[in-house]
């Protein structure tokens, strides 16, 4: 089961678990708190944040999410975009 579908507007949680101790995070810093759009559901994969510490890892929905590049860095051309794999636990409805 997946919460989001292609075309849904989402926002990456503005969360910084790094500040609380040792973690393994696959969500790049530069998209924390940024709005994006779901492009595709990619399947379910065990949570790497647990796998990295050999903890039991539950399967999470993984999405391809597109971000307008210029909203993150103002230089460069207008409609270029960055496509990133992001786990459902990092996304909220925008």
């Amino acid at each position: 089961m997946s919460l989001f579908s292609a075309g849904d507007p989402v926002r990456v949680r503005d969360d910084w678990p790094e500040t609380g101790g040792a973690v393994h995070i696959r969500t790049p810093h530069y998209v924390r708190g940024m709005p994006g759009e779901i492009r595709a559901y990619l399947g379910r994969f065990p949570n790497p944040e647990d796998l990295a510490f050999a903890r039991p890892a539950r399967d999470l929905a993984l999405y391809h999410v597109a971000f307008p590049r210029q909203a993150i860095w103002p230089e460069g051309q207008g409609d270029d975009e960055i496509l990133i794999e992001i786990y459902e636990t990092w996304l909220e409805r925008a």
Partner: peptide, 28 residues
């Protein structure tokens, strides 16, 4: 951050009308 500048150094010019989509391979 500067993909078109980076590509230009490889001699790769992406025309203005062509969208550049950077695929950041972050997960599985």
């Amino acid at each position: 951050r500067d993909p078109r500048g980076l590509l230009a150094e490889w001699g790769t010019i992406v025309p203005a009308g062509v969208k550049l989509r950077i695929v950041d391979s972050t997960a599985d």
